[in-house]
Amino acid sequence: MLINGVEIEDTFAEAFGMWGSRLIITGANERWARTAAEAATGLATSIIGCGCEAGVNRLADDEETPDGRPGVAALFFTVSRSSMEAQLLTRVGQAVMTCTSSACYDGLEAEERLKIGGKLRYFGDGFQGSKKLGGRRLWRVPVMDGEFVVEETFGVAKGIGGGNFFIMAEDYPTALAAAEAAVDAIGDVPGVILPFPGGIVRSGSKTSSRYKGQHVSSNTPYCPTIRTVIGDTALRKGENAVLEIVLDGFSEEGMSRAMGVGIRAACIPGVTRITAGNYGGTLGQFQFPLHQLLKA
């Protein structure tokens, strides 16, 4: 398959089941809503090293924030419900509550609930109060600039982590421009995040190492600087830079849509190929065949 002269390999991205939560974080203005969300989703690139994968997502077109103030969605993905609770307690408590003017609401209608605000309320030292509104309980915790409003519970639902595609290009500026275009395009898809810095991964990994105790290592087959000294390079002559896009989301449909718009946006002159990472279909619960999702 060719898109704008760029070869799309006939392969698939292999992804895994995760648990996801969606928080709506508001602030006095867009700047502080985003600041709180970016702090809460910071250092959450890879589940392996960070305990969760997270990112900021815009609200849906017809969605308004619970308190009517400017806000954004923050999505979190972990391997279990219990680890989600631990992550949210830390991240909401340390990064949202501490951010001036912020408030934090559940943004996911899910049956399974995690008690987050209901635990963070104790920060109020007995002076916290609550309001029950439309079946939800909101806690008002006194803080130095007024009150931190946080919802008692947050929904947690099954999600998908590790969707991916690789952009191979003739040079780094082209790879970067293509990856940026992909990130911008995917940013319009609600319910999907790109957890790595700026949405782009430069240090893709493989699940093996020559060092004892090191479980992952650089994805050497895709590293151009050592192409000639390894026996299993995946790069062709003329491919001098590779960037990867990694996606997490709540649904296969959303992930497919995001990958589709991202790949199409990345097909610019100078990009040689787009492929995806998998383990032969042996490890992941989900498969995203590139040709199939691009035909949809």
Partner: peptide, 24 residues
């Protein structure tokens, strides 16, 4: 001070068609 929670009530009222103004 500027309380946030009245905005939550306003939104709930708006959801029921009992308030018309946008924002918080």
């Amino acid at each position: 001070y500027q309380p946030v929670f009245p905005g939550d009530y306003l939104r709930e009222l708006r959801r029921w068609g009992l308030a018309e103004e946008d924002g918080g």
